[in-house]
Every structure is written in C-alpha cells, then in structure tokens.
Design a protein around this nucleic acid. Structure first.
Lengths: 112, 112
DNA sequence: TAGATATATAACTATATAGCTATATAAAAG
DNA sequence: CTTTTATATAGCTATATAGTTATATATCTA
C-alpha cells in the first residue's frame, strides 16, 4: 500500500466533522474549557467530549487539567501538515497542467 | 451522476483514508481507469471501487465511462476549499499569537 | 458469435463512529 | 461536612464504513 500515512488519516478524519471543526475554530481564538467549548452545541456532554477525545488523539489539540476543569488549546502542527499535503497535491496538479499548456502551445507554434 | 452536495465534512472524511489519498496523488499525474488506479493496491476490486465512489461523492474526483472502462480525473476545487479552510484557521491562530506578542512586548516596554 | 476484459452489483461480516442516559468522581463553594 | 460544579466513565443503540466472495453486465477481440 503506497502512501501509508497514519497521521494524516487521523487528522483528516478528525476534520471530517462539523462539531470538531467548530471546536478548532473556537480554539483559534484561545484556550477554553470543556464547558465553554460545549456551550454552543445542542448535544449531550458525553457525546461532545467524545469529539474532544478524537481531536486530542489526532494531535490537533492538547489539554491539561486545571482544578476541576480541563483546558483545551489548539496544536497547529497537524493543521500545517494537512495543509501542506493538500498544497502539494494542488501544486503537482497545476504544474502538470502548465506543462500540458506548454506542450499544446508548442504544437500550435510548430503548425504555424 | 446526480447532484451531490459536497461539503467540507465529506471532503475531509474522504481524505481520511490512505488508499483514497493515494488515488488522488496518482490522479494528480493525469486521468486513469479503475484498473490502472487499483493496480498498486492489494485489495479486492469491489472494496477499491467503494473508495472511488466515496471520492466521487465528495466531489474530489469526476469520472466518465469510455467503452468498458471508467476514467477518473482529479477535480481540484474541493481540494482548494479544504486547503483554504485550513489556511484560514492557521492564519487566525497566527494573527492571535502576533497580537499576544504585541501585547506582551507593550507590557514589557511600559515596565521599563 | 464465443470468450476475454473491465467494471458493477448483491449480499454478507466485522469493526468503527456518533449519539444517548445513568452514574461516578474530584474539586470548589458554602 | 455537604452541596454544587465540572468533568469522566459505563453501557447501550443505531448507523456508517471497510472489507470480503460470488455473480452479473457491458464491451471489446478473435
């Protein structure tokens, strides 16, 4: 199996849920507790906490206990990795199209 | 193919599998048939084709029938969307850190 | 037209994911 | 010391996902 990249898999899978993307967007504004993060969502707390666990397992966020609260913060490295993979794919695609354009242009010139 | 409504969730979910990312990377080099795409993978063909269906439903690829073959090609728009979402999150995060740096610097200057 | 090729579909199993309620624990507040 | 608050865990259901084999269909090739 070529391109075996387990980190990217858990990162992209974690990103594939609107609740989890919402949490990441919120954490972009700064660290927050479980209750602060869950407040906008109409969802039982254990269900919401499951999403937080998925985010933490993927490495997209990090948490620590402070008194009876748990504080989550963004961990931007995994976001950068995912972004770079996408950027690379897009760039390879665009370079190929450029080479195709060059080729077609050359064909055209040779016919003239 | 019917009108699917691809969004970030289906895009990121589709990206969360190494086989599917491998297919996307391969399609970056140019269009290919099902058998060409499946060749590197040690997986039963129906299982592999399921991955192609997931990619097509997400809008990351497009396909058409040519004789008895089906030809897949990359559809870069969904990749760009995903890339832009990640870029935006990262930029918001970095801007916030910059503002925090400014604030800390100002505090330091005011103490001197 | 018969056979080979390239998908496509059906039917099934196993595991993962996303949600719930109920209950437990740990720390803060009174 | 009791109550409230803020998670944390247990245990359950339903659906989704990822894989399999067997079989069907459509299109080329001889």
């Amino acid at each position: 199996m070529p391109n075996y990249e387990p980190d990217l898999s858990t990162t992209f899978s974690a990103l594939g849920d609107p609740t989890r993307r919402g949490v990441l967007a919120r954490l972009g504004q700064g660290a927050a507790t479980v209750s602060e993060l869950s407040q906008p969502y109409d969802m039982a707390l254990p269900s919401f906490m499951q999403h937080l666990k998925v985010l933490e397992k993927s490495g997209l966020v990090h948490s620590h206990k402070a008194g009876r609260s748990r504080i989550y913060e963004l961990q931007p490295e995994r976001i950068r990795e995912a972004e770079q993979w996408l950027q690379q794919q897009r760039q390879l695609w665009e370079q190929r199209l450029d080479r195709l354009d060059d080729y077609l242009l050359q064909m055209k010139e040779e016919r003239e």
